[in-house]
Amino acid sequence: MLKASFSNLIYVVSMILFLIGFYAVAMRPSLIKKIIGINIMETAIFLFLIGIGNKKGGASPLVVEGIEKYVNPFPQAMVLMALVVGVGTTALALILAVRLFECENGEKR
């Protein structure tokens, strides 16, 4: 198990990152920190996905004459789309947080 984990170091790292993000989401009371946690989780998953698509010695998926070996383009496309989705969710989270902040401050005033 250890040896396998070692060769899959990126996966292990991304899992650990994921858990760190999860901890922030679960334990931090601050809304902004929760959002940051969510982003850490997201990034961890992107790392994971990119790792899955890797191929040793593969070139970036940009077809050029003479090169036969490319890395898998599909995870990259997936990450690109998930990134945009991530932007959307983060933005919405910020919108709600900002509005909530406004409401609570408004009541204090």
Binding site: K34, I38, M41, F48, L49, A93, A97, R99, E104
Partner: peptide
């Protein structure tokens, strides 16, 4: 305020759930 609170809580849980989907599909 109440609705926003509820919405934010829903959002946090929901995003975690969608990230689980992403991880799982990975």
């Amino acid at each position: 305020r109440e609705a926003l609170r509820a919405g934010f809580r829903y959002l946090v849980m929901g995003i975690v759930s969608s990230l689980f989907i992403l991880l799982g599909l990975g």
